[in-house]
């Protein structure tokens, strides 16, 4: 898979409820996904500070995908609505400055949706492999 030996470092930001639940459902079903996808947990997607995402994208992540409860199903009622706004701004900032907002994905995954989580991990991994390394990662001058 993937040419020239590039193995991206991917962070998978998961909320502690549905996102994590999805990852645990995947585990209960022994579904496999690439080892280079590393979970980063926050209580709620609404608790994912933009600073965390930027930090990851500047300091070593080739991409970051965010999953949490579907809109309307947030454990904390509103967190994912707010997260969606934050993510939109993050992506817009990155895109406007030519930093590739497409290295940041938002996709809802519910507790039971283990397959959806695993599919997402594969899909995002392939997506980032297609893009190649995140140029920011190797820049000393960030």
């Amino acid at each position: 898979m993937g040419g020239n030996g590039f193995i991206p470092k991917i962070l998978y930001a998961l909320c502690a409820w549905c996102g994590t639940g999805g990852s645990e459902t995947a585990a209960a079903l022994w579904l496999k996904y690439p080892e280079n996808v590393r979970p980063f947990r926050v209580v709620c997607t609404g608790a994912l500070d933009p600073a965390y995402v930027l930090r990851a994208l500047i300091e070593g992540a080739d991409g970051m995908v965010v999953s949490g409860c579907h809109p309307g199903d947030c454990h904390y009622n509103l967190g994912n609505f707010r997260a969606r706004r934050r993510l939109a701004v993050m992506k817009e900032v990155l895109n406007t400055l030519g930093l590739d907002g497409d290295r940041l994905w938002l996709r809802w995954v519910a507790h039971g949706e283990g397959k959806r989580l695993v599919d997402t991990a594969f899909e995002f991994d392939a997506h980032i492999r297609g893009k190649g390394p995140n140029p920011l990662v190797k820049r000393w001058d960030t």
């Binding site: 209580v43 709620c44 608790a47 994912l48 500070d49 600073a51 930090r55 300091e59 454990h75």
Partner: peptide, 30 residues
């Protein structure tokens, strides 16, 4: 739920188990 810590542009609002000074190094380590 952590909504406040994201809303707060400063570090004034925080979760006791996810302070900024814990989260940034933990992302770096990840």
């Amino acid at each position: 739920c952590g909504a406040c810590l994201v809303a707060c542009p400063s570090e004034a609002a925080y979760l006791r188990d996810a302070r900024g000074e814990q989260m940034i190094p933990s992302i770096d380590a990840l």
